[in-house]
C-alpha cells in the first residue's frame, strides 16, 4: 500500500468520493460549532471589545491561504518529478480555493482594522504580503487558463509555482523591511509570553482552524474530481474527433 496508488485517477476518484461526505460533514460541524462558540460564548477582549471575535475567521483563513500555496508547491513538484496527472490537477484545483481564503483573510483584516486602527486599509507588512500573495494566485490561475494544451499548462504553472514560491518568501521579507507595521504579532503560539492569546479563545479557535482545514480538503477533493472528469471528457472528445 503506497501513497502513489492514488496517482491512478480512477482509484483517486473512488477513494475521494468515499471520503468526501465525511470530510464535508466534519467541516460543517467544526465550522458551525467553532464559530457559534467563538462568537457567542467567549468574553469580549478588554482592549478590542467584541471586534476581536473576527479572529475566528481571520486567522484560519490566513493560515489556509498560505498552506494552500504550500500544497500547490508540493503537488507541482510531484507532477514535475513523477508525472502524475492527478497531482497537477490537484494543484490546479487548490489555487482558486487558496485565492478565496486569501480574499477572506484580506476582507476580515479590513473589517478588523477599521475599528482598531481607524482605517479600512493599512499598508501593514502582513496585509501587504497577503495582497501580494493574492497577486501570485491571480497570475497562477491566469496562466492555467491561458494555455490550451493541458500538459503544457501543468508544466508551466508548476515552474511558475516553484519560482513564485521563492519570490513570495523574498517579498515577505522585503515588505517587512519596508514597513514595520501595526499588525499585532501572531498570538497563537505565545503561551507563557507577555501578551498571550486568552485561553478562552484558544479552543474555539482551534475548532475553527480544524473546520477550515477540513473545508479546504473537501473543496480540493471535489474540485480535483471535477478536473479529472473534465480531462477525461476532453480525452473522449479528442478520440471522437479522430473517429475511432
Amino acid at each position: 500500500m503506497s501513497i502513489w496508488e492514488y496517482a491512478n485517477p480512477k482509484k483517486f476518484i473512488a477513494t475521494a468520493q468515499r471520503v468526501l461526505p465525511w470530510v464535508a460533514t466534519g467541516a460543517a460541524v467544526a465550522l458551525i460549532m467553532g464559530l457559534i462558540w467563538g462568537f457567542f460564548f467567549t468574553p469580549d477582549d478588554y482592549k478590542q471589545g467584541s471586534t476581536v471575535k473576527i479572529i475566528f475567521l481571520h486567522v484560519p483563513a490566513a493560515m489556509m491561504a498560505i498552506n494552500a500555496w504550500v500544497m500547490m508547491l508540493v503537488t507541482s513538484l510531484v507532477w514535475l518529478v513523477r508525472r502524475h496527472h492527478v497531482s497537477a490537477l490537484a494543484a490546479r484545483a487548490a489555487a482558486p480555493v487558496g485565492m478565496t481564503f486569501t480574499l477572506i483573510a484580506l476582507a476580515t483584516g479590513a473589517f478588523w482594522g477599521q475599528p482598531m486602527w481607524g482605517t479600512w486599509w493599512e499598508w501593514d507588512p502582513r496585509l501587504t504580503s497577503f495582497l501580494i500573495l493574492f497577486l501570485f494566485y491571480l497570475g497562477y490561475v491566469a496562466l492555467w487558463e491561458a494555455v490550451e494544451n493541458p500538459d503544457t499548462a501543468a508544466d508551466l504553472t508548476a515552474v511558475l509555482c516553484m519560482v513564485g514560491s521563492v519570490f513570495a518568501v523574498l517579498s515577505r521579507y522585503a515588505v517587512k523591511f519596508w514597513n514595520q507595521g501595526l499588525h499585532q504579532d501572531s498570538t497563537i503560539l505565545k503561551v507563557g509570553e507577555k501578551d498571550p492569546l486568552d485561553p478562552a479563545y484558544y479552543w474555539p479557535l482551534a475548532v475553527c482552524i480544524a473546520g477550515f482545514i477540513l473545508l479546504f480538503v473537501a473543496l480540493v477533493l471535489l474540485r480535483t474530481i471535477t478536473e479529472i472528469r473534465l480531462r477525461r471528457l476532453a480525452v473522449i472528445e479528442a478520440r471522437e474527433r479522430l473517429g475511432s
Binding site: L135, A142, V175
Partner: peptide, 24 residues
Amino acid sequence: TVGLKRGGLLLSLLVLPLYVPTLI
C-alpha cells in the same frame, strides 16, 4: 508566455508580482 497569442497582458500579470522585492 512565449507561445500565447495575447501573452502581453498575462506577462505583466506574472512578472509584476515577481518584481516586488526588487522594487522595494
